[in-house]
Amino acid sequence: MTERPVVVHFFGTYLPASEVWVHRQLTALQRYEPLVLARRLERVAEFLLPRPPVAEGRGWRGRAGRRVLGVAPRQLAAARTAGARLVHAHFGPVGRRAMALARRLRVPLVVSFYGRDLFAHPRGTTGLRRAYRQLFRCAALLLVEGPAAAARLVELGAPPERVRVHRLGLDPAAYPFRPRRRAPDEPLRVLLACRFTAKKGLPYAFVALARVAAEGLPLAIEVVGDAGADPAERRLAERLRTFVAQRGLTPHVRWLGFQSAAGLRAAMDRAHVLLHPSVRTPVDGEGGHPVVLTEAAACGLGLIATDHGDIPQLVVPGESGWLCPERDVTALVTALRQAATEPERLAAYGVGARRRVEHLYDLRRATWDPVYDAVLGACSSTATALS
């Protein structure tokens, strides 16, 4: 069997609970073998790869090597030993650090942007333009999840010809589809699934749920996710729990915390709708396309989301879900009410969402393989022309 060319995947942390979808993309590769290099490793035993991931190392030799080489010596050695043909960095700031590795290996660099890295900087857009200036010159290709993110990347100074939309997909066959219909004597089963960050819009979700509950609509709410180590996330978690208690929602809410992929899938199986009201914030800016929306759509859940980032690529009003303006609690209430009282609409939206997943997000047709083929082919053509 011919060995597959190796692509280095460069991360800050591999693999936080909120980014387990990365493993799905890595294991779907058909013609290339991934080698993960990261500053820090987490949950590695849960997400096995053909080659073991390599962390930076914290000894004085590693620190000295990074100052001299711009990259951890043990990671550079691992990439060279593997004969890496390309470096793929995940998130813009990580791409900046990956430039040194790509330069030392003399291989092309691909960078994926996922949302926050297109907006978050103490000096805003001006700061991001300066921070990414060199990266935009060095990277062979810049990947984003949809046209809104592509436009933002060009606004920051990226050459349009190097920006490509490449959606994060899944295998629809792995997500059994079931149309959702609420029985008259059944509560509306609502799922919220996200990390407790401000851009996820959780306060608006709970205000809407409280209003619907006050109208007498029975609810069963499950929350998958939690706060991380960030103090702001922990304060938000406390505020949400206090609000739930004050509004009498405690008997109707189950806080499940971070879950495995199987745990999240089980929660989706129990739910009628996924409520995901993302908002733009001064700190995080705009998010990308939440992968949990794609997973819920594949399963047949009703999607209640906001007109935010590239979410409208999946959630199309009147076809595949309810798309509400950001921070519009009244619109969220209307969507929840319709999901509970109009079973045919709920079922039809689930069918429409599944179709959009099959059309736009089928991983069997959207792996990173053709991206690498194109980059390496272009580099080979350039080298031949110059020889």
Rank of each mutant, 00 (worst) to 15 (best):
325 P>M: 02
24 R>E: 09
123 R>H: 05
154 V>D: 00
161 E>F: 01
273 V>N: 06
7 V>P: 11
365 R>N: 01
222 E>F: 07
173 A>S: 02
52 P>R: 11
311 I>D: 08
293 L>S: 04
317 P>N: 13
222 E>R: 13
71 V>G: 01
156 L>P: 00
276 H>T: 15
169 G>C: 13
351 V>L: 14
258 F>W: 14
319 E>R: 14
362 D>L: 05
115 G>S: 11
280 R>G: 07
269 D>L: 07
144 V>R: 01
32 Y>K: 09
286 E>G: 01
276 H>W: 00
220 A>N: 02
64 A>V: 13
31 R>E: 07
199 K>I: 11
263 G>W: 05
92 G>L: 07
110 V>S: 15
191 L>H: 12
3 E>T: 13
111 V>E: 01
307 D>R: 07
177 F>A: 03
34 P>H: 09
54 V>E: 04
21 W>E: 05
120 A>R: 14
185 D>K: 08
183 A>Y: 08
238 E>V: 04
182 R>N: 04
328 D>S: 12
57 G>L: 05
164 R>F: 01
349 Y>M: 01
174 A>R: 09
138 C>P: 00
22 V>E: 08
23 H>M: 12
67 R>G: 13
166 H>F: 04
118 L>E: 04
22 V>H: 08
381 S>P: 06
191 L>Y: 00
171 D>R: 06
356 R>M: 08
169 G>P: 04
235 R>E: 15
21 W>M: 15
149 A>M: 15
311 I>G: 10
18 S>E: 08
314 L>D: 04
211 R>S: 15
382 T>A: 03
127 G>T: 15
76 L>G: 03
51 R>P: 04
51 R>L: 04
259 Q>V: 04
79 A>M: 06
359 H>I: 03
262 A>S: 10
29 L>R: 12
48 L>V: 10
36 V>L: 09
228 G>L: 06
66 R>V: 14
41 L>S: 11
186 E>F: 03
11 F>H: 15
222 E>S: 12
352 G>P: 10
261 A>M: 12
80 R>C: 14
250 T>L: 06
127 G>V: 07
290 P>D: 06
251 P>S: 04
58 R>F: 08
122 P>K: 01
158 A>D: 00
85 R>A: 13
3 E>F: 08
335 A>S: 09
287 G>H: 06
369 D>S: 09
141 L>P: 00
42 E>K: 12
166 H>C: 02
78 A>C: 13
291 V>Q: 15
273 V>Q: 00
313 Q>F: 02
366 A>N: 09
282 P>T: 02
307 D>I: 10
342 E>S: 01
38 A>K: 05
348 A>N: 08
70 G>S: 10
84 A>N: 12
334 T>C: 11
142 L>W: 03
